[in-house]
Nucleic acid binder design. Structure first.
Lengths: 340, 340
DNA sequence: ATGAAAGCGCTAACAT
DNA sequence: ATGTTAGCGCTTTCAT
């Protein structure tokens, strides 16, 4: 009796497979007494339905995929937590795929998932806007998907993002009010929508407060670590007076922090930094950094909820013209010591 | 032509399904010319084999599960990265399950996985040693699994852990050499093997350096946050002279850090802290903390490699009496400022 | 080198 | 209320 299956279970009970199957699914066709008997023996013999047989038959996998650029950012860990909390409740399984920020990798993963392994996908895009054929294939195949954090705005899919414009504006306003005179925006790339929205907020705030344009610096540090160190270092020498830096990502803020140590710039006396950060620990421990924290767990939850809604609605006529687009706000943590 | 399948593909090619299947699997029975034709059309029509059909038929899922207590620790994120790097290479899929440190949850997940959904499982145990029936069921079912980080030593399964004893010894030695006179060990629970090994290392170092036993303090702070804050606060008032704290987990070190701020204890002047930490950022940013960093990525990799080896060897006669037990070392980061 | 056919375990439409 | 049966899409044994 190596592996239990519904056939053996049925034989043991002197019932037909279909009766057993119905009983296990609590069908109204089966009388209570039979159900009890079936459930009891199933439990006793430790019967577990084969998930692949039922997936094959029902054409549904009870599984979703999460496709993310990196997991070793606390942000994505928290998002996965949020996703898992919903999936667990709905008895769905969660597959993780990591693209390592390589667009081709993402394409490959998404293309693979066209095979029906999952009922839906949550994506934080690693791609640039010029490549979205694979998303369209998902649409064509009828596989629901939801973007979170990094959305591709050329694709008609629900999105869950943070209000990066607002956060950028708020962060910059904070620097302005802390008596900064020069303002720098540290960017990873001008291809990432979230980062660009942060920049837009940054620029809008500076404009509203009528900051002299020559005092505004946009630093494209890029993703290569050695290079970005050099670019930031070059920018800081010579140091603009009363510089306020808004770092669009934590990594660049930390690099800046190290460079300042290296070339003896005092934070926050000579230089103020405010950065996005989803490492609560870092934010709490380091007195030199004001941070913008994204509601990562909620993003995961919201995205999962939207996805499950789409999965449920699949096939139904959907008169939705405007796709759901959830925008959540970041939280600004200001440390006292950033005041000059 | 909604969904491609092997039947339609075969019809299109005027071949039988079996020939097509063999061609797709590069069987030696099929001549090169035919293979090419099949592959070409498969690509053109974007044919993707149904994973559930083949899983059902082959009784293998090309999927592994990772069961962890929490994902929002950087440690586990890094481990997953390591796991994913191997799984990706071997074209395996990775399912994530989070137990939230609830042993019953872990049991439930493991029991569910007895249904064959995965070919193997990587577990960081949330359970106490008195409950391991579910692990034995895995053994019975022949589902390979590997423990990482938190192992259950009563179960005969491969383990990948860090040398916590050695790390504990090293950390404590560092405190001793920094002229500390009193020594405290901050523990979450005395039920977790890793933490206990750290404690053993701590005690062994103190013994070797002949530290007066009355100067040794074991603080069981527990997992409840409010409670642990209170327990640590109580311990620090009044403050033992030249206290060196070895925190078995980062969370308690951070709590201690905050309490010190709150009740005006100067770190590292009045109090030194050394802690396990897998948040490189925190370690880099905070000058008050010396840290022990676990080789998380390698742990994930090693664990995955062991698992895939077990999966491969399944069914074969295995004369292994001593199970593989990989022990990796943590890295000690000492910040200058912790020297008094 | 290719094909026919059985069957993995389950579900559901259709009897009875 | 219960049973019979076809078939989901694939792999594989056994012909040819």
């Amino acid at each position: 009796m190596e592996n239990m299956n519904i056939k053996k279970l049925a034989k043991e009970l002197n019932l037909s497979v279909s009766t057993v199957s119905k009983a296990l699914h609590d069908s109204y066709e089966i009388k209570a007494e039979t159900k009890e008997k079936v459930l009891a023996l199933a439990k006793q013999l430790n019967y577990q339905p084969n998930p692949f047989a039922s997936s094959l038959r029902r054409n549904s996998s009870k599984t979703i995929a999460v496709v993310i650029p990196e997991i070793a950012h606390n942000f994505f860990s928290l998002v996965i937590n949020g996703i898992e909390s919903i999936a667990e409740e709905l008895k769905y399984h969660v597959l993780i795929y990591i693209t390592h920020e390589i667009p081709e990798k993402e394409e490959q993963i998404i293309r693979h998932l066209l095979n029906g392994r999952v009922d839906g996908i949550l994506i934080s895009s690693s791609g640039t806007s010029n490549n979205n054929a694979h998303y369209h294939e998902l649409v064509q195949k009828g596989i629901p998907f939801v973007f979170f954090d990094r959305a591709n705005f050329d694709v008609d899919a629900p999105r869950v993002t943070t209000d990066d414009y607002q956060a950028g504006f708020q962060a910059t306003e904070h620097l302005i009010k802390s008596q900064c005179k020069h303002f720098a925006f540290l960017s990873l790339s001008n291809q990432m929508s979230a980062i660009n929205h942060r920049k837009d907020g940054f620029l809008a705030a500076l404009k509203q407060y009528q900051i002299e344009p020559s005092h505004v610096h946009i630093i494209e540090a890029g993703t290569d670590e050695t290079l970005s160190f050099q670019i930031i270092r070059d920018f800081l020498q010579p140091l603009p007076v009363s510089l306020g830096i808004f770092s669009s990502v934590e990594k660049l803020a930390i690099q800046t922090y190290h460079i300042c140590k290296e070339i003896d710039i005092m934070i926050p006396k000579q230089l103020k930094i405010i950065s996005f950060s989803n490492l609560p620990t870092a934010a709490l421990l380091n007195p030199a950094l004001s941070t913008l924290t994204q509601p990562a767990f909620s993003i995961g939850k919201e995205a999962a909820l939207l996805l499950f809604q789409s999965i449920k609605n699949k096939g139904k006529i959907q008169p939705i013209t405007t796709l759901p687009n959830v925008v959540l706000k970041s939280t600004l943590f200001i440390r006292e010591s950033t005041k000059m």
